[in-house]
């Protein structure tokens, strides 16, 4: 096979981004929207790290960016879930 080294990962990252963006627009339920956002975010993270690998040395800057990004994504997701629970709480 003569594919460039990161092709599969790039394809997966593009697909994940598309699935996430598409889901965010088409889904009705708020929880699904949040999941879709996370999927899209993972797509971007994959892209960043894959790009960091194409050079001669492994580039640590994208790794640092993704680590920061994961924590930021988790924080925002937690806030979103907190809001969803308050909005859609099951009546006791």
């Amino acid at each position: 096979m003569s594919l460039p080294p990161g092709t599969l990962f790039l394809l997966a990252s593009a697909l994940l981004f598309a699935i996430g963006a598409h889901g965010l627009v088409t889904c009705r339920h708020l929880l699904r929207k949040v999941l879709a956002l996370n999927v899209a975010m993972t797509g971007v993270f994959l892209l960043l790290v894959t790009l960091g690998r194409s050079g001669t040395t492994v580039d640590p800057v994208p790794h640092a960016m993704v680590l920061t990004g994961i924590v930021v994504a988790l924080s925002t997701t937690a806030v979103a879930l907190g809001l969803i629970v308050r909005l859609e709480r099951r009546r006791p």
Binding site: L10, S13, A14, A18, L51, D59
Partner: peptide
């Protein structure tokens, strides 16, 4: 979505990705 995916893939495949590895 599919069109977007393909465009994104085409763009990302063409990126030279010089990176900051050497500088770090």
């Amino acid at each position: 979505g599919l069109a977007g995916t393909m465009t994104l893939l085409a763009v990302t495949l063409a990126l030279p990705a010089p990176g900051l590895g050497e500088r770090v």
